[in-house]
Design a protein around this nucleic acid. Structure first.
Ligand SMILES: NC(=O)c1ccc[n+]([C@@H]2O[C@H](COP(=O)([O-])OP(=O)(O)OC[C@H]3O[C@@H](n4cnc5c(N)ncnc54)[C@H](O)[C@@H]3O)[C@@H](O)[C@H]2O)c1
Ligand SMILES: NC(=O)c1ccc[n+]([C@@H]2O[C@H](COP(=O)([O-])OP(=O)(O)OC[C@H]3O[C@@H](n4cnc5c(N)ncnc54)[C@H](O)[C@@H]3O)[C@@H](O)[C@H]2O)c1
Lengths: 208, 208
DNA sequence: AAAATATTGTGATTATTATCACTATTATTA
DNA sequence: TAATAATAGTGATAATAATCACAATATTTT
């Protein structure tokens, strides 16, 4: 599992991408590394080195072409490789994610939701149906889905993750504030909003 | 602004905290650095060095006391320092965050929401009212609030952030996928779920 | 046309972070 | 009680990441 591009660089690529969208909307064709660096408060040589990694050449006194750069980042990050996923837990967070229509632009397609609450099962949002959790193994196999977005309460998270893994799930985007135990071959990415808030607060408010 | 504890360490402290909650719930009194390290797939010496920073001593052959360690992390990260905040944008994400009753345990108190949609203004959730955005300057001053959680659509984010800054806001937890321009003295923490998904996908699915 | 300026590209350097390797200590086992 | 094993604590080392410094180049200005 040798990554050509480090996670640190990938993180910055996503930031560059946000800025490039803005420039594109404003109709600006070229952008320079000092401009980007100033926005992100990083060193401009860093920006150039990152773009070099994508084999993206700039032009002296001009900068980089916004359109090319954006496409280059999108190719690298696999925007056009469709990634089908299920959401498990049709609660506040699960439904918010399901209703967000922008994920498909980034390669993420939510096909359906799963829940164990009989009231929720059967409901539909934007062509996305809520199924009973017991249907997960069958549908995961039939639709060839191996990615889930886990948005169940903390107390249920490990149990539900186990069930997902049994159902053939290989990638879990985990929104519960729990460190999941998964067998090797299964990958977890934690979206821990509480942890994120704590980091924010420490950096800016507490630890100064 | 010299931080005694680096952001990297703070990030791990939040992870340790999740694990400690689990141990506490299971009634286990002590935990060792190799145990924690195994859960997080990091080096055990790293764990010990982090705990040393908090002046938390362990005991040979036993480990660290779960209760002490948890309190120590909570003190360091300022759990008991109450931080009042407003949510701007009572949409899918804003409401999900407003309904989450667990933030107060970590020091974050959401006092109210703001929106510009007349249908939403006046509604109430869990004692949290939705005010018209025009009320922000007044309420921020009266309630002495300088933290906002920004959950408006991408296109409005910069404009609304500008207004928040004019209203005296100093800390912005930004959920919109936009790099905000703010004057110095104002601090932004980005919670970019799209960017996070891209990192997840690159690490595990694309770039392998 | 020449000078001034802004920018890329990149090797060298520095800073930060993580790991290794080992000693000291203490509980458990024989 | 002695031997064994698990763990904390920590300096040395390695790996990773960010910054600096500057030559090369292209555009703009005079
Ligand atoms: N709401 C937030 O703002 C917020 C913030 C930080 C963290 N989180 C975390 O995100 C997760 C979801 O939060 P939420 O506010 O959406 O919770 P929620 O209670 O609104 O939704 C959870 C959903 O999971 C379903 N569920 C419960 N057990 C299940 C099972 N065994 N199988 C299938 N579905 C099951 C419930 O029926 C419910 O619909 C939680 O782990 C929470 O800690 C939420
Ligand atoms: N929903 C998701 O899962 C998701 C995922 C990733 C990112 N985001 C980002 O989070 C943000 C919120 O997303 P959402 O799905 O909750 O959007 P939403 O449309 O459901 O909610 C946005 C809210 O902001 C309000 N608003 C708009 N302009 C305003 C203004 N000028 N002043 C005050 N309020 C205003 C709207 O009335 C609405 O209630 C967006 O920037 C979105 O890109 C959302």
């Amino acid at each position: 599992m040798d990554q050509k591009i480090s996670q640190k660089v990938v993180e910055r690529l996503t930031l560059y991408h946000s800025i490039l969208i803005e420039y594109l909307e404003e109709g600006i064709e070229a952008i320079s590394s000092p401009q980007i660096a100033a926005r992100l408060k990083i060193d401009d040589s860093q920006v150039r080195k990152d773009f070099k990694l994508l084999n993206n050449a700039g032009k002296c006194r001009v900068g980089y072409l916004v359109k090319d750069l954006k496409e280059s980042i999108e190719n690298t990050l696999g925007f056009s490789a469709p990634k089908d996923a299920f959401i498990i837990g049709a609660g506040n967070v699960g439904l918010a994610l399901a209703k967000y229509d922008n994920f498909t632009n980034y390669g993420l397609n939510v096909l359906a939701l799963f829940d164990n609450d009989p009231i929720k099962v059967g409901m539909e949002f934007d062509n996305k149906q809520i199924f009973h959790i017991s249907k997960l193994p069958n549908l995961a196999e039939r639709l060839n889905v191996d990615i889930v977005i886990l948005t169940v309460p903390r107390q249920q998270a490990q149990k539900v993750a186990d069930f997902a893994v049994e159902s053939g799930i290989k990638y879990i985007w985990n929104f519960s504030p729990v460190i999941l135990r998964v067998p090797s071959g299964v990958n977890v990415w934690n979206e821990n909003l509480i942890a994120s808030f704590l980091q924010f607060a420490y950096k800016n408010i507490i630890g100064s």
